[in-house]
Amino acid sequence: MTDLPAPAPRQSLIARAIDSDIFYSFRRSKLTMVAAAIVAVLLLLALFAPLFVVQDPFDPRQLELINSRISPLWTADGQRPFLLGTDEQGRDIFSAILYGMRVSLAVGALGVAFAAVLGIGLGLIAGYVGGAVDTLIMRIADVQLTFPAILIALLIDGVVKSALGNHLDASTTLLVLVVAIGLSFWVQYARTVRGSVMVEKNRDYVAAAQLIGLPARVIMLRHVLPNTMGPILVIATINLALAIITEATLSFLGSGMPDAMPSLGTLIRIGNNYLFSGEWWVVAFPGIALASLILSINLLGDWLRDALNPKLR
């Protein structure tokens, strides 16, 4: 007779998280840990930007022309407190980057959230209801998938702006960008959720829920949706990087965030004008900030995809 194994002692949530497979695979990958550290540092810097900056870079009253065109601190002409130098108007580049990163992250995260809610909603409906509704939604998705997201975002942005007038204030522009990004990225969520719903719908637990008379809305949201969340999380992470790139590209092209409330893309567009006059730091540091942000998020997304994929264990 073998004894039954003793029931595992109940652990706290943190202990369980540290003990989990995912945390184990996280600790084994040095690259992922470095990427997570970079994302964490950049997030903190952006979140608490006012604590780290030497000036509010977008308040014209705080800029002094006497401080213009200062090169970074470690170069011969560097001056305190301008760590990464200043631009034409005496704006501290480091402060501008922190504020710009806030805008980039906000647009990216809100855009992804909007895309996810829209895509998950439509995917649930398409998968659960089926029939003509399903055909309609998925046909729209197919057509949209033919075109690159950046083109769709650019079009939506242009149309909305022409409908609302070309001179919007900064926070309206931010909302327009969020909508444009959301509408360009929903398809992947819808397809994934629809696929999982079609599988889950035939499971016994759904039949049981239908038998006890739960409404379709409750079954979809409470019972089917949680079982489709794994892949959604992976898509959302990788899409965050894509959304930040899209926003930066729109701003670089001049149809994104305005100069009054610049994102990293806007800063790069402005800095690009000074490339030939030798002020490389005006464009270089926002570029490096954007690249390291995107690269780190991509690395985290890759790791998450592998860690949540049971086939690779």
């Binding site: 990087a241 790139i245 930066a248 590209t249 670089f252 790069i268 690009n272 490339l275 030939f276 490389w280 464009v283 570029g287 954007l290 690249a291 995107i294 690269l295 991509n298 690395l299």
Partner: peptide, 22 residues
Amino acid sequence: SLIGISLPTFLIGILLIYLFSV
């Protein structure tokens, strides 16, 4: 190739311009 996928197109362009033109 990982870095190439992560860098936005316009940054690569700016980098090339800085190197080969400036």
